[in-house]
Design a protein around this nucleic acid. Structure first.
Length: 501
RNA sequence: GCGGGCAUAGUGUAGUCUGGUUAUCACAUAGGCUUGCCAAGCCUAUAACCCGGGUUCAAAUCCCGGUGCCCGCACCA
């Protein structure tokens, strides 16, 4: 489905819509409706079950979304994003003012107002580094962070966090004490991050307010042992830099063991690639032939990332592979920077007496992007039918309950709906229209199971208190005893967990 | 940010060029009939010209501005 078409369907069904729609919307902001909010929660729960489930020493936190200026100064976000931007009127290329001025002002542009920068550009007859034109624009401030007036005086500066990761790095010293004084230590955060994107586009793929799920694993760089044997035989669809340089777009299947033995990647890194891949396949259910692990080159990576593979899924709605998450080996960059910034020593002493500054392996996951991708890859039309083949454990509404004949079977069906709801299931009762329409509605909402109460349910005899259980994917119906329903549904809806390390 | 295109019920659309009765049609939604297990049928109802200004006797239609969306470029620490 094309992006417009898919978005229209999601709007119609109450999955998501533009924020402040009655005012014409706001670029890069979207609200989740009932179905979307529930699906988002399910994705978050699935992510948590899987990744926090990787170890007994991984914890989920919920930190503040506002960061004091000192934090973003230390992390580098302030420095890298307060630079004014100059663009070329001729070739429309945008540059940091610093880049344009570097010949005449090697000390940088800190402290210069946009007007002063424009003066320097003019006085020195500076040219566009790309095309040589002198038609350079007046500098504009360029900062992807939302700044806030913080406190009563409004003089203190603070920022909406541009990524959740910083919150986890700040929490590390406290978590070291809360935890068992042992590495690896994992800090997981699911929460909002905010970026004032220049050009938000493609609905959920470039938003100004979005939800990230990130697991930061702090580990001893000399000693991060993983049960690699268990995953060595797993093959991954990787697209590595040398193959990319030959113009290849498609991944090749390489065994995890070979990525380590001949691929020059550390075991701990590949081990986490495998488990992340398994999450995309086994929990989210993306087709194997749509996933690729896209290695970023030296030039493409942020300088502090030593290894980076993006998890990409090919989406018809957006016309190509899109990044849904990544695995970054960040070295000790983050704890070093925050150590310097705060003046606190963020190294820890291990039980063997060694003092180490932990390295970080960062597993990032875009909740919104994956929600869209789950619609793109699992929602489609099959003739007259529109079916959202979501994995059952992710379904926003896992069960629909209908009376076959409204007047005759409503009371029983309503009671059954209440009973199942009491077990914690999100159920939807529907008696409108024909039975076929109700099934169709639930198919579109991604509901994997529908329960129908009919005459047999009420009649005396061997079928008393049995209902039909209809499966979305096969349309198959089986007769099930009502008393077996809760266990049967719970089984089918359980969230997968990885084997613990 | 730049260039181009687009904007009519919940969704998809006709009408716009060439201004002129009550804005077309389908689907969806709600109610009714239908003893019916996969979007059947019939009846009824709800529901739209993106926002602001201008031209005109008269604007969905022409002009200007804004907003949003799409495509390409740039950007994405």
């Amino acid at each position: 489905m094309k992006s417009d078409e898919l978005f229209a369907l999601l709007r119609r069904r109450g999955v998501l819509w533009p924020t402040a729609e009655i005012y014409g919307g706001a670029q890069g902001l979207y609200d989740y409706g009932p179905l979307g909010a529930a699906l988002k929660r399910q994705i978050e729960e699935a992510w948590t079950a899987w990744f926090v489930g990787l170890s007994h020493d991984y914890y989920r936190l919920d930190p503040a979304e506002i960061l004091p200026e000192a934090v973003v100064r230390a992390s580098g976000h302030l420095e890298n994003f307060t630079d004014p931007e100059v663009s070329c009127e001729n070739c429309h290329t945008a540059f940091r003012a610093e880049t344009v001025l570097e010949k005449v002002r090697p000390e940088g542009v800190d402290g210069l107002s946009p007007a002063q920068i424009a003066e320097v550009v003019h006085a020195n007859h500076l040219r566009c580094p790309s095309c040589g034109s002198t038609a350079l624009s007046v500098p504009r401030p360029f900062n992807l962070m939302f700044g806030l007036d913080f406190g009563v005086t409004g003089k203190e500066r603070a920022y909406l966090r541009p990524e959740t990761a910083q919150s986890s790095y700040l929490a590390f010293p406290r978590m070291w004490d809360v935890g068992r004084h042992a590495l690896p230590l994992g800090i997981a955060v699911i929460g909002k991050a905010y970026r004032n994107e220049i050009a938000p586009r493609q609905v959920l793929f470039r938003m100004r307010s979005f939800t990230q799920a990130e697991l930061q694993i702090f580990f001893d760089p000399d000693h991060f042992v993983v049960p690699f044997d268990r995953v060595a035989a797993e093959a991954l669809p990787v697209l590595r830099v040398p193959r990319r340089e030959k113009g290849e777009e498609t991944p090749e299947w390489v065994r995890a063991g070979d990525l380590v033995a001949t691929g020059n990647l550390p075991e701990f890194y590949v081990y986490h690639l495998v488990h992340t891949y398994r999450f995309y396949r086994e929990v989210l259910g993306y087709p194997a032939d749509r996933i690729r692990l896209f290695e970023k080159s030296d030039q493409e990576r942020a300088f502090y990332n030593r290894i980076q593979f993006d998890f990409e899924v090919r989406l018809d709605s957006l016309g190509g592979y899109k990044e849904l998450g990544a695995v970054h080996y960040r070295g000790d960059y983050d704890l070093s920077r925050h150590g310097e910034g705060s003046g606190k020593d963020l190294s820890v002493t291990l039980t063997d007496g060694r003092s180490v500054r932990p390295h970080v392996l960062e597993l990032t996951f875009g909740i919104d992007r994956n929600l869209w991708a789950l619609a793109d890859t699992h929602l489609g039309t099959e003739g007259e039918r529109t079916v959202w083949r979501l994995p059952a454990c992710l379904a926003p509404v896992p069960v629909g309950i209908f009376p076959l004949i409204p007047k005759a079977h409503s009371a029983y069906a309503l009671r059954l709906a209440d009973e199942l709801a009491a077990t914690g299931l999100a159920v939807r009762y529907d008696d409108a229209g024909t039975i076929g329409k109700r099934y169709a509605r639930m198919d579109e909402a991604g509901t994997p199971f529908c329960v129908t109460v009919d005459a047999e349910t009420l009649a005396d005899g061997p079928s008393r208190d049995t209902v039909t259980l209809r499966e979305r994917d096969t349309k198959a119906q089986t007769r099930v005893a009502v008393r077996d329903l809760p266990a049967r549904l719970a089984d089918a809806l359980r969230l997968p967990r990885p084997p613990r390390a």
